[in-house]
């Protein structure tokens, strides 16, 4: 059997294993985002949103739907890979892969694929929930798919890097709590950055999540706070950077080989 055929089987195996894992614990992985996002829709969309009125020319509920879907994608992509890879490291069953001929790129692709599968299922669930609260139209399906895939890939890679470096379970909860949540909340999920004073608008431009949320929102509403080209470029750039980092540390065996 050729190496590429063998690698494809290995990739499929890791992906199936990852999907089996999050589906086995669906109450912990798929149900919470549905409940959390329903609460967001009820509180921010229906109760508070009606008083806010329009944001960027659309109803507040329509405005926050893309951001909330993206928030679920970011959180689930990150936590799926971080917790799965860290558990494998903690239980030492990561050695099953390290002793086998699976190339580093296939290990990364397998974990990213698993994280993406969970994120996409959650995205579909949250989108279905949003249909109960708002009349959702999609302006550019291609951009919706492209931004969600690139964002999910990026945060899966981020979760992987975090898990490789993490030594305790605390280490893998620090980044979501102290980095991801602030960046997401300040990334224009609930507001348009045009509402901010000029200085804070400029500061917000340094937040990569802003480009993801707005790129995704452009796909839904056909409008955003940043140019779609810049949003895609930022996403591609961060993906390349994070993949290179993940490849380097896994290939060197940092944190997983003596």
């Amino acid at each position: 059997m050729s190496h590429s055929a063998s690698n494809f089987i290995a990739l499929k195996t890791i992906w199936i294993k990852e999907c089996t894992r999050f589906l086995r614990i669906w109450v912990q992985t798929l149900v919470p985002p549905a409940i959390t996002m329903t609460l967001y829709f009820v509180i921010f969309g229906s109760i508070v949103g009606e008083r806010i009125g329009e944001m960027s020319g659309v109803g507040y509920m329509e405005f926050i739907v893309p951001g909330l879907i993206m928030m679920s994608v970011i959180t689930n992509s990150y936590s799926n890979v971080a917790s799965s890879f860290f558990s494998a490291k903690f239980q030492r069953n990561i050695e099953e892969m390290l002793v086998s001929p699976v190339p580093t790129s296939v290990i990364i692709a397998g974990y990213v694929g698993g994280g993406m599968a969970r994120a996409m299922i959650v995205a579909v669930i949250v989108t279905c929930v949003s249909f109960l609260f708002a009349d959702i139209q999609i302006a550019h399906v291609g951009y919706v798919v492209l931004t969600v895939v690139l964002t999910s890939t990026l945060f899966c890679l981020g979760g992987l890097i975090n898990a490789v470096y993490g030594k305790t379970f605390d280490d893998i909860s620090i980044v979501p709590t102290f980095v991801l949540t602030p960046l997401t909340y300040l990334g224009g999920v609930f507001y348009s950055v045009s509402l901010l004073p000029e200085f804070w608008q400029k500061v917000s431009m340094a937040n990569p999540v802003l480009y993801m949320v707005n790129g995704f929102r452009y796909g839904f509403l056909g409008q955003s706070d940043v140019g779609i080209g810049i949003a895609i470029a930022v996403l591609v750039g961060f993906n390349v950077l994070f993949f290179a980092m993940a490849y380097y540390i896994l290939d060197k065996g940092i944190g997983i080989r003596s």
Partner: peptide, 15 residues
């Protein structure tokens, strides 16, 4: 069975 079948998969053994 999942453990042994997955391990074989890493070596390229069809499922």
């Amino acid at each position: 069975q999942q453990i042994v079948v997955n391990q074989a998969g890493y070596y390229g053994v069809p499922r």
